[in-house]
Design a protein around this nucleic acid. Structure first.
Length: 274
DNA sequence: CATTACCTGCAA
DNA sequence: TTGCAGGTAATG
């Protein structure tokens, strides 16, 4: 799925295009199972006539603040996209939700794999979603000291720990592999065994890979689209992700693909010793 | 911890 | 045909 940089890009794109517009209603919905709460009828009734006040990101959720204390929350999971299209844009078989705006344009939610999820939340629901997630890695609250506290005493391997949204919100498979390579840390090392100096390097690497990707509009491959329907971000290049068998750009050793916590994992064994 | 489930498309 | 894909929750 889109990870933090891609979701951030989508949220910004939606904000730029839809802030101040009113959702007149649900124009298309062919996969109601993706709506987790409320039920379909409640969703249709609750969203109609609401003005979009702001669009932001929390973890990998796109959050549209609506008039009346409600929030439209969308998770793109593996293959979802959220795009504002002109009135004449066709609805294809992978488009599962279309929201009509008061100026004739529409917000399309497209999702090949149907893993994406949509919620219409009140204040309590939004608070619960927020509480479910850990620190935002690009926020002021994510200091090296805070990161050190997260690692302290944990026997979990560092990669699965970084993927745990309840600890740090927004990292996914790509950027974890990239950050670990930058910091020269093997993904299977126990978190508590990562030394202070290494943890500081990893903290910096996490912020750098995320920030750089946001600057470039998110990485683009497979199903990812920004809020304008563009692939964008082709400039983002990865050091190890999906480069198994290729030489490491730092040491020349061969990048290896392995499986860690059931996720494809890419590592330079020479740069990132166990 | 690992496995399974949720879905579909695509490359090997 | 098999395995793999940016995610996450539920279940041994």
């Amino acid at each position: 799925m889109p990870e933090l940089p891609e979701v951030e890009t989508v949220a910004r794109d939606l904000a730029a295009q839809a802030n101040g517009r009113t959702i007149t209603g649900v124009e298309w919905l062919d996969w109601p199972r993706m709506i987790e709460t409320p039920d379909e009828a409640g969703f249709r009734a609750g969203i109609a006539g609401r003005k979009i006040l702001a669009v932001a990101r929390r973890a990998k959720w796109v959050l549209a603040t609506l008039e009346g204390g409600l929030t439209l929350a969308v998770h793109l999971r593996m293959s979802g996209s959220l795009v504002v299209y002109p009135a004449d844009h066709p609805i294809d078989p992978y488009t599962h939700l279309v929201l009509a705006l008061d100026d004739g344009r529409r917000i399309f939610f497209r999702d090949v794999r149907k893993f994406g999820r949509v919620r219409l939340l009140d204040a309590a629901g939004l608070a619960a979603l927020d509480a479910h997630h850990g620190v935002e890695p690009l926020s002021d609250g994510f200091t090296p000291a805070v990161f050190a506290r997260i690692l302290a005493g944990k026997s979990t391997r560092i990669k699965p720990l970084l993927l745990d949204q309840a600890l740090i919100a927004g990292l996914g498979n790509i950027y974890v592999d990239e950050a670990l390579w930058h910091a020269k840390i093997h993904p299977e090392r126990p978190a508590a065994a990562v030394q202070a100096k290494e943890a500081k390097a990893l903290h910096g690497a996490i912020q750098e890979v995320l920030t750089k990707s946001i600057t470039l509009g998110g990485s683009s491959f497979r199903d990812y689209r920004n809020g304008y329907g563009q692939q964008g971000g082709n400039q983002v290049s990865f050091a190890v992700y999906q480069r198994g068998g290729e030489p490491c750009q730092r040491c020349g050793g061969l990048i290896e693909r392995m499986v860690v916590a059931q996720r494809g994992t890419h590592v330079c064994p020479k740069c990132q010793p166990r």
